[in-house]
C-alpha cells in the first residue's frame, strides 16, 4: 500500500534521506523511531508530495505521488503533531468541510456525528467551536476526518506527543481499530512504549537511514529500548 523505493532527499548538500526502502501493507502500523532530524518527517512529507524527492520514488497504492499528487491524496489521511482546524467553525463543521473537500458530500449530520463519536470526541463537543478544543480533541477530529474519508493510508507525524497517557492510549486504540479495518499506517513517533504496544512493525532512523526494521511482536519493551539507545549512541 505504501512503498518507498530508494527514496532520497538532498537539501543542498545535506542528505536528509539516504535511499529509503520501505513497504507497508494494509493492516500494518509502522512506527518510525529516531531522534529529531533523523528523516522521519522528511519521509512523511515525501509521501504527501509536500516536497519532491531528489531521486527514488514514494508510491501509494502503486502510484508515484510525485506524478499523481492529487489522486494519491484521495487514499490518504494526514495527522500532524497538532491537527489544524478552523477555529471559528465547530468540530462538526470542520469535519463536514473536510469530508466535502474529500468528495464525500453524501454524509448526513448523523453520519458525521457518528464518526466523531467513534473517534472518541465527547458528546458535548461537536457543536462547539474548535477554538476551545484541547489538543486531544483536535487529534480525535483528525481521526474522524480520516474515518470519514475512508482513507486506506494514514500518515501520522508525532500525533501523540504532548497528549496525556489516557488520551494517548485512546488514540493508539483507534489506530489499532483502523489497522484492523485494513488501513496501512505510517507513524513517526518518539513514544517507544506506544510503538511496541500498538505498532506491528518498528523502524529506527538515524541520519537519514533506516538502521533497524523489526516486527514488534518479536521483541520485548526493554529490548526495543535497548536497541534504540544502542543506535543512538553509535
Amino acid at each position: 500500500m505504501l512503498e518507498a523505493v530508494n527514496l532520497k532527499k538532498d537539501y543542498g548538500g545535506h542528505l536528509a534521506l539516504k535511499g529509503l526502502n520501505l513497504k507497508i501493507e494494509p493492516g500494518e502500523i509502522y512506527c518510525l523511531l529516531g531522534a529529531n532530524g533523523a528523516g522521519k518527517s522528511t519521509t512523511i512529507n515525501l509521501f504527501l508530495d509536500f516536497i519532491k524527492p531528489s531521486s527514488g520514488m514514494a508510491l501509494i497504492d502503486g502510484m508515484n505521488v510525485a506524478d499523481h499528487s492529487i489522486e494519491t491524496k484521495k487514499a490518504l489521511a494526514y495527522i500532524p503533531e497538532i491537527v489544524m482546524l478552523y477555529r471559528n467553525l465547530s468540530g462538526l463543521e470542520n469535519l463536514r468541510y473536510f469530508s466535502q473537500l474529500a468528495g464525500h458530500s453524501e454524509y448526513t449530520d448523523a453520519d458525521l456525528l457518528g464518526f466523531l463519536k467513534r473517534a472518541g470526541l465527547p458528546d458535548h463537543a461537536p457543536m462547539k467551536r474548535v477554538g476551545g478544543y484541547s489538543k486531544g480533541m483536535r487529534q480525535k477530529v483528525g481521526i474522524a476526518i480520516a474515518i470519514a474519508k475512508q482513507a486506506k493510508v494514514l500518515l501520522l507525524d508525532e500525533p501523540t506527543s504532548g497528549l496525556d497517557p489516557k488520551a494517548s492510549n485512546e488514540f493508539s486504540d483507534l489506530l489499532v481499530q483502523l489497522a484492523g479495518d485494513g488501513v496501512a499506517i505510517l507513524m513517526a513517533t518518539h513514544d517507544l512504549f506506544r510503538a511496541k504496544e500498538s505498532g506491528t512493525r518498528a523502524g529506527i532512523m538515524k541520519h537519514g537511514e533506516l538502521v533497524a526494521d523489526l516486527v514488534t511482536a518479536d521483541i520485548g519493551h526493554a529490548d526495543l529500548e535497548a536497541l534504540y539507545l544502542k543506535h543512538m549512541h553509535d
Binding site: 509536500f50 491537527v83 489544524m84
Partner: peptide
C-alpha cells in the same frame, strides 16, 4: 500561519 493550509493540501485540494 494557522497550519490549515497543510491540512488542505493533504486532502488533495488543488
Amino acid at each position: 500561519e494557522d497550519g490549515t493550509f497543510r491540512q488542505l493540501m493533504s486532502m488533495g485540494v488543488p
